[in-house]
Amino acid sequence: MTIAAIDPLQAKARLQELIVIDVRTPGEYTDGHVPGALNSPLDQLDRALPDIRNAAERGEVLVVCASGVRSEKACVQLAEKGVHAVALSGGTGAWAAQGHELNRPLACEVKTAWSMDRQVRLTAGSLVLLGLALGEFGPPAFRLLSAGIAGGLVFSAATNTCGMAAMLGKLPCNRPRKADLDATLARLRSL
């Protein structure tokens, strides 16, 4: 299935007419998002589907993530449910690289959360150090943990996917609070 995509310059020119759905985790969303974007994490998309479908009847839906990978997955998921959406090519990374502003809530408005890439770096680095330390002071086979993490990082880069990020995304700190997702759904209904 071919996913329609628009580049950040096209999206910027049409921002007022687009319904922008950001499918990143709440922590990533608060780090900076396309102005007017509503946060509905990818793993909560089914819950938001009725409201996204209704909003899509009133305007074109633009799906955004960090790099474009999750937004393409979301577009496929929406298309399978009969909702047309387009992805932002390159995600918020490309948006910011072209000099477009990102909205960031005031620090007092949100709980502090680490971005997903920071969480992945911490987890991967900790597991590599753990594998090396255990291999040094215990059976050398523990070094295989470090080798496995290194292999996973190479695979992640080669395929532009990240299994560790998918697993970390399920942690409570990366899940939207019910009230946050309910607020997003209410805003979708009012569009």
Rank of each mutant, 00 (worst) to 15 (best):
M1L: 10
T2Q: 14
I3N: 09
I3L: 12
Q10E: 15
Q10D: 15
K12D: 11
K12N: 13
A13H: 10
Q16H: 14
Q16S: 15
E17F: 05
V20P: 05
D22N: 02
D22T: 02
R24H: 02
E28C: 02
Y29P: 07
T30K: 05
T30Y: 06
D31K: 04
D31G: 13
P35R: 02
G36I: 02
G36S: 08
A37F: 05
P41T: 12
D43T: 14
D43Y: 06
Q44P: 00
Q44V: 03
Q44W: 01
L45S: 11
L45Y: 06
L45E: 09
R47C: 06
P50K: 10
P50E: 07
D51Y: 10
D51P: 00
I52M: 01
I52P: 14
I52D: 13
A56C: 09
A56T: 15
E57H: 04
E57R: 12
G59N: 13
G59F: 00
G59Q: 14
E60L: 15
E60C: 11
C65S: 11
A66V: 09
G68V: 07
G68E: 08
G68W: 05
G68C: 11
R70W: 07
K73W: 10
C75R: 12
Q77N: 12
Q77Y: 11
L78I: 02
G82V: 09
H84A: 14
A85S: 14
A85R: 10
A85C: 10
V86C: 13
L88W: 04
L88I: 11
S89V: 12
G91F: 01
G91Q: 04
T92R: 05
G93A: 02
W95L: 12
A97I: 01
Q98F: 08
E101T: 15
N103R: 07
R104H: 04
L106D: 14
L106K: 13
L106P: 00
C108N: 13
T112F: 08
T112G: 05
T112H: 05
W114V: 04
S115Q: 10
D117E: 10
Q119E: 04
Q119K: 07
Q119S: 05
R121T: 01
L122E: 00
T123D: 00
T123V: 13
A124Q: 04
A124F: 02
G125E: 00
G125K: 03
S126M: 11
L127K: 05
L127R: 03
L129I: 07
L129D: 03
L130K: 03
L132V: 13
L132T: 02
L132Q: 08
G135H: 02
F137V: 10
P139I: 03
P140W: 02
A141H: 04
A141Y: 02
F142L: 06
F142T: 00
A147L: 15
A147H: 00
A147Y: 07
G152K: 01
V154F: 04
A157I: 03
A158H: 04
T159C: 09
T159K: 12
T161N: 14
C162P: 15
G163R: 05
A166W: 04
M167Q: 05
P172L: 13
P172Y: 02
R175P: 03
K178M: 08
K178E: 15
A179W: 02
D180R: 11
L181Q: 09
L181A: 08
T184P: 06
T184M: 12
L185M: 15
A186Y: 01
L188R: 08
R189M: 03
L191Q: 10
